[in-house]
Nucleic acid binder design. Structure first.
Length: 315
DNA sequence: GTTGAGCGTT
């Protein structure tokens, strides 16, 4: 199938944008999201029924209606929660890079009584504003509270208020502070790859890809096996990656922490090397490849992958 | 079954 475009717009009155399809006639959701950040699907008005119809979406792939895409204008679907946020963004901006300084982050809650539960925390902090995440950290073996936890608010105002005072929770004074993980911004070297900490085992690579797509084109997702509670996500654009570093994002109700992908133990030569770095994501790909170039399809595949994982200065 | 400054299974 030759070059085919489908017409997509944010609503029926707007001028449509032409979006390329794949060779098999499908359209990737990621292609749509590249032009309409945050998009989660497409719909269109059926010429027969005059009703809006959803476009079939299977694992990030949009499938044409029975009679093909035709010349219809397809309307972008946004997640219910994101709709308003997306509208606030300049419609012409493809990717949101600069984001407001009103963003909230997790707060550590120190000094909790041993008995305090997550429900207790949620009940207490809800008086300050909408709470979107609470955690009580516990010993994995015993389940006993470690006496601290985390809370995250929807609104920055609530966060500021909570940070500004002490809290009497279940009979003890507690402090809410920015966690250390947020305060020391290590040198931000330009990388397209970010480290995603505090992942849970049920997060699939596909889910992570779908989630991070809203910020920009994702070129790779790497989840170590066996489970290690972190992942690497690589974007096409390093600015997107950098813009996320230091943030806490909520995925499937879990607060993950985004930071720069390079390990702390950079040796100095690599660090001096024009900001180059060596986050090989746990593989010894470079060694394998330079010793046995092109020996097997899997090595070739790993090399392909390495082009995403290494900065261009190393490839 | 204990405790009371800290930092979230990198």
């Amino acid at each position: 199938m030759a070059e085919l475009y489908i017409r997509v717009a944010e609503d029926e009155n707007e001028e449509p944008m032409e979006i390329p399809s794949e060779d098999d006639g499908t359209v990737l959701l990621s292609t749509v999201a590249a032009q309409f950040p945050g998009a989660c699907g497409l719909r269109y008005r059926s010429p027969v029924s005059q009703c809006m119809r959803g476009v079939r979406l299977v694992e990030g792939v949009l499938h044409a209606p029975e009679n093909g895409w035709g010349n219809l204008v397809y309307i972008v679907n946004y997640p219910k929660d994101n709709k308003r946020k997306m509208d606030e963004i300049d419609a012409s901006s493809a990717v949101k890079i600069k984001r407001g300084d009103q963003k909230t982050s997790d707060l550590i809650v120190l000094g909790l009584p041993w008995k305090t539960s997550e429900q207790d925390l949620k009940d207490y902090f809800s008086t300050f504003g909408e709470v979107i995440m609470v955690q009580v950290k516990r010993d994995v073996k015993t389940g006993n509270s470690k006496g601290f936890g985390f809370v995250r608010f929807t609104d920055y105002e609530a966060q500021v208020k909570v940070m500004s005072q002490r809290h009497m929770i279940d009979g003890r004074w507690c402090d809410c502070k920015l966690p250390n993980s947020k305060q020391g911004p290590d040198e931000p070297m330009r990388s397209r790859k970010v480290f995603v900490g505090r992942c849970t085992e049920d997060m699939t690579a596909e889910e992570l890809r779908q989630f991070f797509m809203q910020y920009g084109e994702v070129t790779d997702v790497f989840i170590p096996k066996p489970f290690r509670a972190f992942a690497f996500v690589t974007f096409a654009d390093d600015q997107v990656a950098q813009s996320l570093c230091g943030e806490d994002l909520i995925i499937k109700g879990v607060s993950v922490h985004i930071s720069n992908a390079e390990p702390k133990h950079n040796n100095s030569r690599q660090m001096m090397d024009r900001g180059g770095r060596f986050g090989n994501g746990g593989f010894g790909v470079h060694h394998l490849f330079s010793n046995f170039p092109g020996r097997s399809p899997s090595l070739a595949a790993m090399f392909e992958r390495s082009q995403y994982q290494f900065p261009s200065s190393h490839v």
